[in-house]
Amino acid sequence: MRGSMELPSLVDVGRRADAVRVLSCYYGLNGHEAHRYAGARFDTWDSAGTRGSSHNRFTADDLVAVSFLSVSVPPLAAEALLDTLADDFAELLEELGPDRDLVEERTPWAEDWVGWRLWGMLDALPSVGPTTASKLYARKRPRLRPIYDSVIAEVIGSNRWWEPLRAHLQQDPGLHPHLLSLRDDLKVPFDLSALRILDVLLWMHGKNNTTCTLT
């Protein structure tokens, strides 16, 4: 696959109405309640009511949340996240700092950047890999870390996503505000990051689910 990335026309400003319709379908909003996708729960799942106070620590709710995106965290990986390596992950998350928009990252990250170290530790968990690792990462820093999977890779034409997207947001300064404006038009009753809006649009495009059909 190429190292560069491409975005489908569904993300273009001129297709705002189509994008809002697709997002409404995914989240079951604005008359599309019957079409809500299971993945919509990824953004809000918080059975213990601790998500707001656990930014720097993985919880059982995070493991349940990624299951709504069709992945599961294997037992040994879960044990590491919640017990044996929990403090190590917490230290890295704390060093990474509060969540912030990817567009605010103006320059490429150094190889020893804490974000890469956290990524490497997640990716190295037993039987996890980049897809599940990205979804776990996105639960803790949804504005900074985009979700990656085979569908996204096929849509953008690349198996690299995070750094190319960071660079693309700098080259296209209108993309981030456009994604936020789609969120506003969606009238979603909870917070969604610009990256999550983009992820849903790319995934729905990749799955050819742009006419509000059920999965």
Rank of each mutant, 00 (worst) to 15 (best):
W203L: 11
I152F: 08
L81D: 15
V20T: 02
D43Y: 02
N209W: 15
R183K: 11
A138K: 00
L186D: 00
L144G: 12
V66I: 09
L69I: 03
G206C: 10
G120N: 09
D149A: 09
P74Y: 12
S9D: 13
D172H: 15
R117G: 04
V13W: 03
L102K: 13
S181N: 07
P146C: 08
T59D: 02
A153I: 12
V114M: 07
I156L: 02
L186K: 01
D61L: 07
P173G: 05
M5S: 03
G28D: 01
S70N: 15
E6F: 05
V71F: 10
L96F: 05
P108R: 09
L102D: 15
K187F: 13
L7F: 10
S72P: 09
C212K: 02
R51K: 14
T84N: 01
L182D: 05
Y27V: 06
D18F: 00
A86D: 13
K207H: 10
G52S: 13
R141P: 05
N208I: 01
A60I: 03
V66T: 02
L182T: 04
D185W: 05
T107G: 05
G14I: 09
D87K: 15
S72F: 03
L69E: 14
G28A: 10
E6D: 06
L93M: 07
T131K: 00
L125C: 04
R51G: 01
D61A: 06
L192T: 11
V155L: 09
L118H: 04
R15Q: 12
P74R: 14
D12Y: 07
L96E: 00
R15P: 07
L96Q: 09
G206P: 10
V128R: 14
P146G: 11
L85S: 11
C25G: 04
E104F: 08
S54M: 02
L214M: 11
E154Q: 06
P126R: 10
L214R: 10
G31V: 05
P74D: 12
S70T: 15
G39D: 03
D101R: 00
T213Q: 10
I147L: 14
D101F: 14
C212W: 03
R141F: 08
W119L: 11
N208M: 08
E163S: 11
W113H: 12
L10E: 03
S4H: 11
R16T: 13
R2C: 13
V11R: 14
L63K: 02
S181H: 05
H32Q: 12
H178R: 08
I147T: 00
G14A: 14
V13H: 04
C25I: 12
L202V: 06
N159A: 09
Y37E: 13
L7M: 10
R16Y: 12
T210H: 06
V114Q: 06
P98A: 10
G3A: 05
L118T: 00
I197F: 05
P164H: 07
Q171M: 15
